[in-house]
């Protein structure tokens, strides 16, 4: 095995540079997924029946079909309908963000539900607007309550980003595969990629713990 590592030693920086690609997918999709998921959560608890139905329908579609299928539809089928090409990067970001939004919206909806309704009512009696109550009182507590679930979702997203390797994006996994097929050695490059994913997830876990500690009161 050590001999195998020696053989691919010069290729390791190439595999490691995939970390940036993987991270760029994860970070951008987490940001878009979080904000669109939040918007979707607000839609789901709105007074409008139409908006609520839209929210439920959206979630059912994105939770009810495989992420890989969604990625294929965005990368292959949308250009077929619209007649315009879409880059693998863009397709990945759009698919991951839309998919993540569905899951995040459910997490945040549960978080909002976990905050004592009495606080909402007190703030209302004090004269605060609905926006102030949601923004200052309910939302920060909701996020604090569901932080572990949001971290799980981020970890999932980071790992699922490996799916873009299927549509040709040179992420961590794809680079490991390229090196593997060049050297006819599979274990070593895949172990390097695995170690990278694992390290990223561990670092994310440490960050999450720090944030959780900061938010706890």
């Amino acid at each position: 095995m050590f001999d195998g590592f020696r053989q691919i030693y010069s290729e390791i920086p190439y595999i490691l540079s995939g970390v940036g690609v993987t991270l760029s997918y994860a970070v951008i999709a987490v940001i878009f997924g979080f904000w669109s998921g939040t918007l979707l959560a607000v839609i789901k608890i709105s007074n409008s029946c139409i908006l609520r139905s839209f929210g439920s329908f959206y979630t059912s579609i994105f939770r009810g079909t495989p992420l890989l299928l969604q990625l294929f539809i965005i990368y292959f089928a949308i250009p077929q309908i619209l007649g315009i090409g879409i880059s693998a990067f863009m397709a990945g970001i759009v698919a991951f963000s839309l998919n993540s939004a569905a899951y995040v919206s459910e997490i945040i909806r549960a978080g909002i539900g976990s905050v004592d309704r009495g606080q909402y009512e007190v703030a209302k009696v004090l004269g605060c607007s609905r926006l102030q109550i949601m923004g200052d009182i309910i939302f920060p507590q909701a996020i604090r309550n569901v932080l572990p679930s949001l971290v799980n979702e981020t970890i999932d997203l980071l790992k699922e980003s490996a799916l873009v390797s299927i549509i040709g994006e040179a992420d961590l996994l794809r680079r490991a595969n390229i090196v593997a097929s060049e050297h006819y050695l599979y274990l070593e490059p895949l172990l390097v990629a695995g170690a990278c994913y694992y390290t990223l997830v561990m670092i994310l876990g440490i960050f999450a713990k720090l944030i959780e500690k900061k938010l706890s009161c």
């Binding site: 004592d116 009495g118 209302k124 009696v125 920060p140 507590q141 938010l215 009161c217």
Partner: peptide, 19 residues
């Protein structure tokens, strides 16, 4: 009633993330 009445609710319902 918001401008006229002040309510001290059952169980206080303090904003738990505020001092």
């Amino acid at each position: 009633g918001a401008n006229y009445f002040g309510l001290v609710p059952q169980g206080c319902s303090l904003f738990s993330h505020f001092t």
